[in-house]
Design a protein around this nucleic acid. Sequence first.
RNA 1: GUGGUUGUAGCUCAGUUGGUUAGAGCACCGGAUUGUGGUUCCGGGGGCCGUGGGUUCAAAUCCCAUCAUCCACCCCA
Length: 453
Amino acid sequence: MKPSIPQGTRDFGAEELQKRYYITNVIRTVYEKYGFQPLETPTMENLSTLTGKYGDEGDQLLFRIMNQGRKVEKANLKAFGEKNFGKFVSSLCDRGLRYDLTVPFARYVVMNQHNLAFPYKRYQIQPVWRGDRPQKGRYREFYQCDADVIGSESLLNEVELTQILDDVYTQLGLNVEIRVNNRKVLIGIAEIIGAADQFMNITIAIDKLDKIGIEGVSKELVNRGISEEAIEKIKLFLDTTGSNADKIAVLERELADSETGKKGVEELKTFFGYLNKLELQQEVKLDITLARGLNYYTGTIYEVKSKDAQMGSISGGGRYDDLTGNFGLKGMSGVGISFGLDRIYDVMEELGLFENIATNTTKVLFINFGGESEDYAFQLLQKIRQANIAAELYPDAAKMKKQMKYANAKNIPFVVFVGAEEMQAGSLKLKDMESGEQQSMSLEEAVNKCLSV
RNA sequence: GUGGUUGUAGCUCAGUUGGUUAGAGCACCGGAUUGUGGUUCCGGGGGCCGUGGGUUCAAAUCCCAUCAUCCACCCCA
């Protein structure tokens, strides 16, 4: 049998993991600096928790887990006979793999509402699964690094999440554009042009502006059944250029007749008002065409893209007013962001940003000469580890060449020889593998030398 | 879900109009070198040519199917 792994999944070796840990450590540290606390939830959730939260498209991408044992009796054989396989499969599955971290978080909040201190700020770094066709920057199993605040409507939360985005990407050495918009503004636009019921169709179409241009968007809108008159009005909004303040001024003027729109504009003004008093490293841009985000977003929405690499969004997020409402807890507004670890990794790899990352490996390899010297080296090994130095003794008295090659392959900077001479003298011989220099010294001297690197 | 790309050694890839025993580089193993690696030199092991079927005297090469892969669309991190 040829070994293989499922489509869209990957193994991560030592080198990749070191880099991935580096990224998540930066994110975790920043999250904690802003007062977020960790949470982990199960890999699988009940399907009733997951379905209906991500739109039809999302539901189709959910990985379902087939029932086992007698539970297969629940299978809807009638649906199978009618070739309604979607329904048939659903009748066979009660659970699924988590599709994101936000919905499990909402479920957790509702289940633990009496024990949590609100506003509750949690971060969560775990894999999620989507039954998408894999391609560049898209995997079926990938890590999200989420932070959410729930139980507070203050826009200060939005501001702080933006600071977190800025802080993390600056620390990682990435040059990004943080795009911000507000769903209420989008709803306002839909109202003003007299197509409030077409809100989703409109946002999906205008979201593609930077990809297919204004003509492409017009065509898309026509296809989605929007009237010519409405499309002309939409174009007025899409043409808006200039600074964030300029754009807000235009929105304020044009959306004066929409209550929801006005609210959205107010929120943007407050948000940018705070933001302008901060010194951020990355560019934060109001983008009226930004519409992405899952179904549940209702206010501010975020999206982050690398300026130097071609890659979809590497972070996303937004405010959702009623995520916990589905689970019976009303009036809980939340806002959150998510870093896409795998895409950030791909971008950093492409830009060569990992070159300066110190990879932790064994610092010292003891060459094994067998017999008494093996025993002696083993004792020294214990002492060097007590000094908190990562060290290992080659477990077999293999040929010197083989042991040295092992040190090279693992990028071990120091090799220690303890043979008959050294045992006699009570010393050891330390070799610097990079320079090739070696000298006899005491254990203490060797420890100091290793610690100095 | 739709469209396309590519599947040959552990890895990256050659392989002519179908024609002897399918190659190279890197990696691996052994030797030159029994207490010193990276460089060099010599030697060696490794392949159901993705899988199944078909055409042919003859298939890595042509045809069909299937699986996998990467890319684009859709959607998203």
